[in-house]
Lab assay of single mutants.
Amino acid sequence: MSGYILFSSEMRAVIKAQHPDYSFGELSRLVGTEWRNLETAKKAEYEERAAKVAEQQERERA
C-alpha cells in the first residue's frame, strides 16, 4: 500500500460526501490535485502509515 492510496481512500469519502453528484473521474482528479498540493510532511505521514499497514498485512498473511 502506498501513501497515496491511503490518502485517496480517505479523501475520496470526504469529497464524495461534499459532492455526491461528482463522477468517479471528477473525484479522482480532485484527489490527485489535493495530493499534489499536500505538504511534504503530510505526505510523509501517509507514507509511514501505509508502510505500517503493509507490514501488518504481511504479518497476517504469514
Rank of each mutant, 00 (worst) to 15 (best):
M1H: 04
M1Q: 05
M1P: 04
M1R: 04
S2E: 06
S2Y: 03
S2D: 12
S2P: 05
S2R: 10
S2F: 03
S2C: 07
S2L: 07
G3S: 02
G3T: 00
G3Q: 01
G3H: 00
G3D: 01
Y4K: 13
Y4C: 02
I5A: 15
I5H: 15
I5R: 15
I5Y: 14
I5F: 07
I5E: 15
I5L: 11
I5Q: 14
L6Q: 03
L6V: 04
L6A: 03
L6Y: 03
L6T: 03
L6G: 02
L6E: 04
F7R: 02
F7S: 02
F7K: 03
F7L: 00
F7G: 02
F7M: 01
F7Q: 02
F7H: 02
F7V: 00
S8P: 00
S8I: 05
S8T: 10
S8R: 15
S8K: 13
S8E: 14
S8C: 15
S8A: 14
S8Y: 05
S9F: 04
S9W: 03
S9K: 14
S9Y: 05
S9A: 12
E10W: 01
E10I: 02
E10H: 04
E10Y: 02
E10Q: 05
E10L: 00
M11L: 09
M11S: 03
M11T: 06
M11G: 01
M11K: 13
M11P: 00
M11I: 09
R12I: 12
R12N: 08
R12E: 14
R12W: 12
R12C: 12
R12D: 05
R12F: 11
A13F: 03
A13Y: 04
A13W: 02
A13R: 12
A13S: 14
A13L: 06
A13C: 06
V14H: 13
V14N: 12
V14F: 10
V14I: 12
V14R: 15
V14C: 07
I15P: 01
I15A: 06
I15E: 04
I15H: 07
I15N: 02
I15M: 13
I15T: 04
I15L: 10
K16A: 13
K16D: 03
K16V: 04
K16H: 09
K16F: 04
K16Q: 13
K16N: 07
K16S: 11
A17L: 08
A17R: 11
A17N: 06
A17P: 02
A17D: 08
A17H: 08
A17G: 07
A17E: 14
Q18D: 06
Q18Y: 03
Q18R: 14
Q18K: 13
Q18F: 00
Q18S: 07
Q18T: 08
H19N: 10
H19F: 03
H19E: 04
H19A: 03
H19L: 02
H19W: 03
P20I: 02
P20K: 05
P20V: 03
P20W: 00
P20C: 02
D21L: 04
D21K: 08
D21N: 06
D21E: 14
D21I: 02
Y22S: 14
Y22H: 08
Y22V: 15
Y22R: 07
Y22K: 15
Y22N: 05
S23V: 02
S23M: 03
S23L: 02
S23T: 10
S23N: 07
S23F: 01
S23Q: 05
F24A: 15
F24D: 15
F24W: 12
F24N: 15
F24G: 15
G25T: 14
G25Y: 12
G25F: 07
G25E: 14
G25V: 11
G25R: 12
G25I: 09
G25K: 12
E26G: 03
E26C: 03
E26I: 02
E26T: 08
L27I: 12
S28P: 02
S28V: 07
S28Y: 03
S28H: 05
S28C: 07
R29K: 13
R29T: 09
R29A: 11
R29I: 04
R29L: 06
R29S: 08
L30S: 13
L30H: 15
L30W: 05
V31Y: 01
V31F: 02
V31C: 09
V31M: 11
V31A: 05
V31I: 13
G32N: 14
G32L: 12
G32R: 15
G32P: 02
G32H: 14
T33K: 14
T33F: 06
T33D: 13
T33V: 12
T33W: 08
T33A: 11
T33M: 15
T33L: 14
T33I: 14
T33R: 15
T33Q: 15
E34C: 09
E34K: 14
E34A: 14
E34D: 03
W35S: 01
W35D: 01
W35F: 01
W35P: 02
W35I: 01
W35Q: 02
W35G: 01
W35V: 01
R36N: 14
R36V: 08
R36Y: 07
R36T: 11
R36I: 08
R36D: 15
R36L: 09
N37S: 07
N37G: 07
N37P: 00
N37F: 03
N37A: 12
L38C: 02
L38A: 02
L38W: 00
L38F: 00
E39F: 00
E39H: 10
E39Y: 01
E39N: 13
E39L: 03
E39Q: 08
E39D: 15
E39G: 12
E39V: 04
E39M: 03
E39K: 07
T40R: 11
T40C: 11
T40E: 14
T40W: 07
T40A: 12
T40S: 13
A41M: 08
A41V: 07
A41H: 11
A41N: 08
A41I: 06
A41L: 06
A41R: 10
K42C: 03
K42V: 07
K42I: 05
K42L: 04
K42Y: 02
K42M: 04
K42W: 00
K42P: 00
K42G: 03
K43G: 00
K43N: 00
K43L: 01
K43C: 01
K43E: 00
K43P: 00
K43V: 03
K43H: 01
A44G: 05
A44I: 06
A44W: 08
A44T: 09
A44S: 09
A44L: 14
E45L: 08
E45D: 07
E45V: 08
E45R: 06
E45A: 09
E45G: 05
E45F: 04
E45M: 05
E45C: 06
E45T: 05
E45K: 07
Y46R: 00
Y46M: 02
Y46C: 00
Y46A: 00
Y46I: 01
Y46N: 01
Y46D: 02
E47P: 00
E47S: 06
E47Q: 08
E47K: 05
E48C: 10
E48W: 06
E48K: 08
E48A: 12
E48N: 06
E48M: 09
E48Y: 07
E48Q: 12
E48D: 08
E48I: 09
E48L: 11
R49V: 03
R49E: 03
R49I: 02
R49P: 00
R49S: 02
A50P: 00
A50M: 02
A50I: 01
A50D: 01
A50L: 01
A51F: 07
A51H: 09
A51G: 08
A51E: 12
A51W: 05
A51I: 08
K52G: 10
K52H: 10
K52A: 09
K52M: 10
K52Y: 10
K52R: 13
V53P: 05
V53Y: 09
V53T: 09
V53Q: 13
V53M: 15
V53D: 10
A54Q: 11
A54N: 07
A54H: 11
A54T: 13
E55T: 11
E55S: 10
E55M: 07
E55K: 10
E55D: 07
E55I: 11
E55H: 13
E55V: 11
Q56T: 11
Q57Y: 08
Q57F: 09
Q57M: 08
Q57A: 14
E58I: 08
E58L: 10
E58N: 12
E58S: 10
E58F: 07
E58C: 12
E58P: 07
R59S: 13
R59F: 12
R59K: 15
R59Q: 15
R59I: 13
R59E: 15
E60G: 13
E60P: 08
E60Q: 09
E60I: 08
E60S: 09
E60K: 08
E60T: 12
E60N: 10
E60L: 10
R61H: 09
R61G: 13
R61Y: 07
R61N: 13
R61I: 12
R61F: 08
A62F: 12
A62K: 06
